[in-house]
Write a protein that binds this DNA or RNA. Structure first.
Lengths: 118, 118
DNA sequence: CGGGATCCGACTTGATACTG
DNA sequence: CAGTATCAAGTCGGATCCCG
């Protein structure tokens, strides 16, 4: 961590609008997908990577760390050789699921109206 | 409009996930704010610009056009000198408002948990 | 196995000046 | 008034390669 490369660094930001705050938390390219995978499962790093089509380790780690910092995701590591790390949603993290469902629901209607009526 | 500059061109994209689709529509930096302003008012270009703190004309136009293409915003122009253009939400556009409210609601809880519990 | 460190290109946004 | 045109800067995500 030298000149860092923080992406959505949600730390110490001020939000003029709470919608912005939410989007900065779930708006990462892979975050919705990751959250969705963790919805009802505890998953290891590699399992996550396999369920996500084409995510690079860099991105997976980065987005997981950010969501960890934001209190959505819990990281549990077992000090073994080889290491074993499990990711899961925190209680607070689970509160985003309905939000994701709402976003998905609207997205479906959006796609419909776009390709039927236009 | 020569070499084009399309940003979130939501045209002809394929979404593996409907959440992505939604975010591409409302995820622009100023879009939530613009939609919020239009929630119950019809506004002219300049009025919009004045209610948005620090948006450049370029961005305002771009995001409005995208939302117009996506069927959220209606643009009505009166061919006068000087010109008069009014922006408003379409019926479909109004369906995003509850979504924005949900996002805002969660954002508020997020900020609370972040600064109280940490 | 679960990452960290680098480097880079593409996309997104901003600042400003100008115009029908 | 309601935008365009242009140029510059910032941000995000991807590709590797390497390590404990």
């Amino acid at each position: 961590m030298t000149t860092e490369d923080k992406t959505n660094g949600t730390s110490d930001r001020e939000y003029s609008c709470p919608v912005e705050a939410t989007l900065s938390v779930i708006g990462g390219k892979w975050k919705p997908l990751i959250l969705w995978q963790l919805k009802e499962d505890v998953l290891r790093y590699n399992s996550l990577q396999q369920t996500l089509p084409g995510i690079s380790p860099r991105m997976l780690t980065k987005q997981l760390r950010e969501m960890e910092d934001d209190g959505l995701v819990k990281r549990k590591m077992y000090p073994q050789i080889p290491p074993r790390v499990e990711y899961s949603l925190t209680e607070f993290g689970k509160t985003v699921i309905p939000l994701l469902e709402a976003l998905a629901g609207w997205g479906i209607r959006y796609v419909e109206q776009k390709y039927n009526l236009k």
